[in-house]
């Protein structure tokens, strides 16, 4: 399944559809990481609001994507985690540590516009 990656100014926006299998997710990872370099994006917003469940594989892959993108010099914001999904994830120990999260796409964009270079650093700086 092809997932479209939208370019919005200096950001890339991806909406993960509800029915996405593991292979699709890995493909998305590869194309996303490639696109970040091609379009010289500052950050990527991944919208997961369509997901009713988040298993450990998708959670780990999302974390990997964020880390890879960070190494490529951009930030990642994950937006739209449903309340039920959030609690289920935490109970499974999938806390997406070190990754910026926001309520929805709007919040994610607002966050990036305010603080474009702080993405992904907030946990560390808050812990100090």
């Amino acid at each position: 399944m092809e997932v479209s990656i939208l370019k919005q100014g200096p950001y890339l926006i991806v909406t993960i559809p509800a029915a996405l299998n593991d292979t699709d997710l890995l493909e998305l990872r590869d194309s996303l990481v490639a696109r970040v370099g091609e379009s010289r994006s500052r950050a990527v917003i991944i919208d997961v609001s369509a997901l009713d469940v988040m298993d450990s594989f998708s959670s780990r892959t999302l974390r990997d994507i964020a880390h890879i993108i960070r190494l490529r010099g951009a930030g990642t914001v994950i937006v739209g985690i449903q309340p039920e999904v959030a609690f289920a994830m935490v109970q499974l120990g999938l806390t997406l540590e070190g990754i910026t999260t926001a309520l929805d796409l709007e919040e994610g964009l607002a966050y990036l516009d305010r603080d474009p270079f702080e993405v992904g650093k907030e946990i560390r700086s808050r812990g100090r």
């Binding site: 994830m89 935490v90 994610g108």
Partner: peptide, 13 residues
């Protein structure tokens, strides 16, 4: 603690 973490996933501190 889990509630705190889940809230963070929703983008709230």
């Amino acid at each position: 603690v889990q509630t705190v973490e889940a809230s963070r996933l929703l983008g709230a501190t």
